[in-house]
Write a protein that binds this DNA or RNA. Sequence first.
DNA 1: ATGTCGTAACGTTTACGA
Length: 260
Amino acid sequence: MKIATFNINGIKARLGALTDWLEEARPDVVVLQEIKSVDEGFPREPIEDLGYTVETHGQKGFNGVAILSRLPLEDVRRGLPGDDSDEQARWIEALVVGDQTAVRVCGLYLPNGNPAPGPKYDYKLAWMERLRDRARDLLAEEEPAIMAGDYNVIPQPEDCADPKAWADDALFLPETRAAFQRIVNLGFTDALRATTAAPETYTFWDYQRGAWERNNGIRIDHLLLTPQAADRLNGCTIDSAVRGREKPSDHVPVWIELDA
DNA sequence: ATGTCGTAACGTTTACGA
């Protein structure tokens, strides 16, 4: 089972880039972030025509997540539990029924948090606390599950080309990294780090200052696996070349292959 | 060089979020 995460930075501007990539990569499941669309405005048909079921959790203008799947979906849930007053669309999950086993796939768009300190950073840290609660519940199920998406967290200095430039940024502050590590430490496997020692494995390059051409990137799109999913992990790939195409997102797809 | 995008809106341009 091939499962991908892709922050597309606006579905209306990225539909062609997305369908091109779906046709060539043929992932079984994709979690999307920053669809920047309400559910009714999401262009379902061109994606359904490629064989995908489309489940969205959108809002006007910003944020928004989705799951695309060629395999049957059950138990689709929208919104991260823990705060009924939170109206930002940043979480969607579903049970994907594979040939060998079912896998719970969670797609997330963790708050950016800048500027820090401030209310946006407070919201980021509070959201990460709620994520930890959901993560703990997933582990308790003792089933294959993954939490994939744009975490807006640079876990370690080696996850960015220029650590000094990110020192005061909400994506790299010690408190951010500690909160991410606390989640991983519950018992999750970072799929990329578990399968490759390659340096300079970035997933995002800013549109500004020729970041892509200079490989001035950061690794912020992650797939975290429960032990039961990690036991089935066959590899993890960053489709970096997508960043060099026409009208690219500033993120690229990251995907794993599971025996499932 | 506060440098690029995508989206929304009292839209031919500005504000916001990233």
